[in-house]
Amino acid sequence: MLIPMKNPKRILVVDDEENARIGLSRLLAKEGFLVESVSNGFEALNYLRQQEVNLIVTDINMPEMNGITFLKELNKSFPKSNVIMITAYGGVESYIEAMNLGAFEYINKPVKIEELKSILKKIFKETSH
C-alpha cells in the first residue's frame, strides 16, 4: 500500500534585500519547501491574508515596516505564526524584543544552511503535534 506523501511545508521569506531574499528562497526550495518571497512587511501581511504558511522567515532591518513591527502586526492578525527573525545587525535589545514577541528563533546573516536546517527540524517537529 502506498503511503501518501505529506504536504510540503510552505515558507514565506520577507527581506528587502533582493539577493538575500532570492538566495534564502533558493536554499529553502532545495530542501523541499514551497517558498514564496516578498520584499516588505506590508506585502507579507497581504500575502498572508490570501495564503496560509507554516513558517515566516523575516529580516529585522527593513524600510517602512521593520521586522519587529511586522512581528507585532503578525501577533494581532496571525497570532499562531512560526517566525524566524534574521538580521545582519543583531543586538541584544532586538533579540530580547523579538523573542518576547514570540519569535521562534533569531539568527544572524549570513544565514548558515546547517543552522537553518537544525532550526527548521525543531520548528516542524514541535508544530507537527
Results as ranks from 00 to 15, higher is better:
Lys125Tyr: 15
Leu120Cys: 04
Pro79Arg: 05
Glu31Lys: 10
Gly91Phe: 11
Val111Tyr: 02
His129Thr: 00
Lys109Tyr: 06
Val35Glu: 10
Lys109Cys: 03
Ser118Ala: 15
Lys76Glu: 13
Leu34Lys: 12
Leu24Gly: 01
Lys80Leu: 12
Asn19Phe: 12
Asp59Ala: 03
Leu71Phe: 02
Val53Gly: 01
Glu105Asn: 14
Leu120Phe: 07
Ser94Cys: 11
Leu74Ile: 12
Asn40Leu: 01
Lys9Val: 00
Thr58Glu: 09
Asp15Val: 00
Glu73Gly: 05
Ala29Asp: 12
Ile3Met: 14
Ile56Ser: 02
Leu2Ala: 15
Lys121Asn: 15
Thr58Gln: 08
Phe70Pro: 00
Val111Thr: 08
Ile56Trp: 05
Ser37Arg: 03
Asn7Val: 11
Asn54Ala: 10
Thr58Gly: 01
Lys80Asn: 12
Gly41Asn: 06
Val111Met: 07
Ile86Ser: 10
Glu93Asp: 13
Leu24Asn: 08
Ile107Ser: 07
Leu48Trp: 09
Ser94Leu: 06
Arg49Asp: 10
Lys112Gln: 12
Glu126Gly: 10
Thr127Ser: 15
Leu2Trp: 14
Leu48Lys: 10
Ala44Ser: 09
Ser128Ile: 11
Pro79Gly: 02
Leu24Cys: 07
Ser81Arg: 03
Asp16Phe: 06
Ser25Met: 05
Lys125Arg: 15
Ile107Met: 07
Glu31Ile: 01
Tyr106Leu: 05
Ala29Leu: 00
Pro79Gln: 03
Val35Leu: 05
Ala103Arg: 01
Met65Gly: 02
Ser81Gln: 06
Leu28Phe: 04
Pro4Val: 03
Pro4Asp: 05
Glu97Thr: 03
Ile22Asp: 12
Leu71Trp: 05
Pro63Thr: 01
Val13Lys: 00
Leu45Met: 14
Phe104Thr: 05
Tyr89Thr: 11
Pro4Gln: 06
Ile119Ala: 07
Arg10Asn: 15
Lys30Tyr: 11
Ser94Gly: 07
Met99Gly: 05
Gln51Val: 14
Lys6Pro: 10
Pro8Gly: 03
Glu36Lys: 15
